[in-house]
Structures are given as structure tokens and as C-alpha cells.
């Protein structure tokens, strides 16, 4: 079973070197324990472009699809047998990256 752990960011500061180092430690642990699927950090929401090609012509719009105080700044995709394991890993992830996270199962 795979879960998406979204990292929620609520200000404009980037991860500090200490936080980056802690994230690396956590990533190594995920890989060693076989939970690792994929992870990544994102540039800020100002760099986003929204595309809508449901009509005749693709429509490109500057900015994120949703303006909000909190936004997605990174994520992990993990493999875990159930939500209890996923929640334990997410709690560790939150501690390491020093941000709030959200856990959501893949279908």
C-alpha cells in the first residue's frame, strides 16, 4: 500500500541546511527499511503554471491553481502495510523536515 506524505509550508522561508541534513537522514532510513518509493522538494507556488487543455486550445495561466496561505512544498511517496505505520513514518518526517505534513493513501 502506498501513501503520499505532503509537506505543508506556511511561510516563504526555504529549508535550512540543518533541516536539509535531517531530511537526508530520514530519507536514508526510509530506504534502509524498505519504505522508500520516491520523494522530492518543489519550488515555490509562484513558479507554477496552470494548464487547461479541455477546450479547443490549451490555456496557460500564471500562478498556482489555488491561492492559499499554506501550500505544498515537497512530498514523500512511501510503502507501508497500513495507516498506523504510515502515520508513524509521517510523524518522523514532520520532525525531520520541521513542517506540517499530510498523509493520504493512493487508491
Amino acid at each position: 500500500m502506498q501513501y503520499l506524505i505532503s509537506v505543508i509550508h506556511d511561510d516563504s522561508t526555504l529549508a535550512t541546511p540543518d533541516e536539509m541534513a535531517a531530511i537526508d537522514v530520514f530519507n536514508d532510513r526510509l530506504q534502509a527499511a524498505g519504505h522508500w518509493v520516491f520523494a522530492g522538494g518543489l519550488a515555490g507556488p509562484d513558479s507554477a503554471t496552470v494548464i487547461d487543455n479541455r477546450g479547443a486550445e490549451p490555456l496557460f495561466t500564471d500562478g498556482p491553481f489555488l491561492e492559499s496561505k499554506e501550500h505544498l512544498i515537497g512530498f514523500w511517496i512511501i510503502e507501508a502495510p497500513d495507516l498506523d505505520v504510515a502515520l508513524t513514518l509521517a510523524a518522523e518526517g514532520s520532525k525531520h523536515c520541521n513542517r506540517k505534513v499530510e498523509v493520504r493513501p493512493f487508491r
Partner: peptide, 10 residues
């Protein structure tokens, strides 16, 4: 069901 909350004693 979707998030697979386990059915067990912690």
C-alpha cells in the same frame, strides 16, 4: 478502508 486503518490491537 481507503487509508487502511488497521484492524488490530495496537
Amino acid at each position: 478502508k481507503a487509508a487502511r486503518i488497521p484492524y488490530r490491537v495496537p
